[in-house]
């Protein structure tokens, strides 16, 4: 069974969201998502300064046998991305909630509040 840390919020497309300060959020993919993907070999990161829409693709995650779009859980502006993933894509498998964070976004607090909590996400993945 995969980990679903209680303090984070989640999207139905398997991203986790951590509030850094109100209005600024860190995003990654969940443990469940990395299990589905298998060994990640490449991450195409969103660009700093890029405006993104909630539920729209803003990057790509590639494993050996699959390629999936990375969706933004919130609308807003990308303010940072984890450049170290370019050389260490395996962090998405090994440590999805910490070293494997993907990008940070400036977004509306109200949108953040609408995201799933850990129990609801756990439910949605049937675990």
């Amino acid at each position: 069974m995969s980990q679903v840390p209680a303090q984070l919020r989640y999207s139905t497309t398997h991203e986790w969201v951590a509030q850094l300060v109100p209005g600024r959020y860190r995003v990654g993919i969940t443990d469940h998502a990395q299990e589905l993907l298998g060994d990640v070999v490449f991450v195409e990161l969103p660009q700093t300064g890029q405006a993104v829409q909630a539920e729209a693709a803003c990057g790509v995650i590639e494993s050996v046998k699959a390629a999936s779009d990375l969706y933004s859980p919130l609308s807003g502006e990308v303010v940072a991305s984890n450049a170290e993933l370019t050389d260490n894509p395996q962090w998405l498998n090994e440590d999805p909630y910490d070293k494997g964070w993907i990008f940070e976004i400036q977004a509306d607090e109200k949108d953040f509040a609408q995201l799933l909590d850990a129990a609801a996400y756990q439910n949605s993945i049937g675990e």
């Binding site: 494993s63 046998k65 390629a67």
Partner: peptide, 13 residues
């Protein structure tokens, strides 16, 4: 390698 570029995985993309 990098088969995720190819049609059997990425299909229309």
């Amino acid at each position: 390698t990098l088969q995720a570029r190819e049609q059997h995985i990425r299909r229309a993309g």
